[in-house]
Design a protein around this nucleic acid. Structure first.
Length: 281
DNA sequence: ACTGGCTCCTGAGGGC
DNA sequence: TGCCCTCAGGAGCCAG
């Protein structure tokens, strides 16, 4: 089974989105938006025509993350950005020529622009007037993996009576936000749970282990992302040198790092899953 | 209420 | 070398 041709470390999963957020804060928060340049409005949803009207003259008060959504808080609303699967947000000098797929620039009063590059255009740039939490894209989102409310009890209760496979369950943003395809396989390996196991047949104890495994998996990636922080927000946006090591993802046929049995692959909901038959039950 | 399948898009990689 | 085909991913949306 062929995995995504992109190096996993370059794909914006939650740790990469959070790393991007942290990198942007010191250079964007407190700045005033001077203008917006939209070169190609055809993202996941069209970039609103009146985006510049909403943003011009507004100060960025804060940058938050909800799941994989970035929220730029402005006095009268929010700029929502999603990186999809190939989006990059970088800070560039205002006079830097746009390259292929540089779809949107948000020009600040610091002679720098926040630039979105997104070859596959699965990303989104939207305006939210009013309370962000009430927006359709954010309203139904589940708990954040680092929220104290994300516990084995929470998962156990939500899974009660349901038959969906655990891997699809933890990738469901209505259950828990920010767990993408790569980290779903990795967390299940860490927790020793077979990805196809129906969620209604998982004990509370094992849910506790999985909640912790998800946090650990994301934390490790976040720490790694920290080492490439500069790269994520640099003028070039070049990926870092960090070598991402996965336990199971994209390792079909290779020996399990724990028990040496060959890693297996299967498809769940049009997505590739990787797991170890020896370590996961 | 759940669940599974479809969809958007581009670029990488394999086969010939 | 180069062309063509397939496939990967996030997640909203819809049908059953």
């Amino acid at each position: 089974m062929q995995a995504c041709p992109y190096n996993p470390v370059q794909m914006p999963e939650l740790p990469e989105v959070e790393t991007t957020r942290r990198g942007l804060v010191p250079r964007v928060v407190g700045r005033t938006i001077q203008d917006v340049v939209v070169r190609d409005a055809r993202l996941r949803w069209p970039v609103p025509r009146d985006l510049a009207r909403h943003l011009r003259g507004a100060e960025v008060v804060a940058i938050r993350r909800r799941g994989k959504y970035l929220l730029f808080d402005l006095p009268k609303g929010h700029l929502l950005v999603h990186l999809g699967m190939s989006g990059r947000l970088t800070m560039v000098p205002d006079d830097r020529p746009a390259k292929l797929h540089d779809h949107v620039d948000v020009r600040l009063d610091s002679h720098e622009s926040l630039r979105l590059n997104d070859p596959r255009r699965f990303g989104a740039v939207l305006w939210i007037g009013g309370a962000a939490e009430k927006h359709a894209l954010l309203r139904g989102l589940g708990v954040e993996p680092f929220d104290p409310a994300f516990t084995g009890e929470y998962l156990h209760a939500l899974a009660r009576g349901r038959r969906v496979a655990v891997k699809q369950f933890i990738m469901n943003a209505r259950v828990v936000t920010g767990v993408g395809n790569i980290y779903a396989s990795e967390a299940l390996f860490r927790a020793g749970i077979h990805p196809a196991r129906p969620v209604g047949r998982i004990s509370l104890e094992r849910w506790n282990g999985l909640a912790q495994a998800i946090r650990d998996t994301l934390s490790l990636a976040l720490d790694a992302g920290g080492s490439t922080l500069r790269d994520y927000v640099s003028a070039t946006g070049e990926p870092g040198q960090f070598q991402n090591v996965t336990s199971v993802y994209d390792r079909e046929g290779q020996p399990c790092r724990r028990c040496a049995r060959p890693i297996k692959a299967l498809r769940q909901g049009q997505r590739s899953t990787f797991y170890c038959t020896g370590c996961q039950r």
